[in-house]
């Protein structure tokens, strides 16, 4: 198994997903299964091959650096689980 319980906890922490104790072992098994399967890529000779970073060769477009949209505060807040006085509201982050 390439992924142990500690690794699951570490990765879940990085991904900001709370994991209950009873979920750790099943996740470790499943993630190991997937990662063990993808290790078959190790048998491919990739010497001198550039990583492919775009599905289709294209140059990123440029445009004038001007404002195209804005003044839509209420639209933006409309879907927030908690919005007050024109702001997103979250638990206190500074002691």
């Amino acid at each position: 198994m390439s992924v142990d319980a500690d690794t699951v906890r570490k990765v879940a922490k990085l991904a900001r997903i709370a994991v209950e104790d009873h979920e750790v072992d099943p996740f470790a098994r499943e993630l190991s299964g997937i990662l063990d399967w993808v290790t078959q890529l190790q048998e491919v000779d990739v010497t001198g091959i550039e990583p492919m970073t775009s599905a289709v060769p294209m140059r990123l477009k440029r445009r004038e650096d001007t404002i195209t949209d804005g003044n839509r505060r209420d639209d933006i807040l409309a879907n927030a689980p908690d919005a007050r006085e024109g702001f997103f509201a979250v638990p206190k982050v500074v002691e």
Binding site: V8, V11, L35, L41, Q42, V46, E50, P51, M52, T53
Partner: peptide
């Protein structure tokens, strides 16, 4: 979690960069 793992420090080249080379 798989994505976070393959992009995490120490695993990036072995998994992600290699996969992109295979994609090429």
């Amino acid at each position: 979690m798989i994505g976070t793992y393959v992009l995490s420090s120490g695993y990036y080249d072995a998994y992600y960069t290699r996969a992109q080379k295979v994609r090429r």
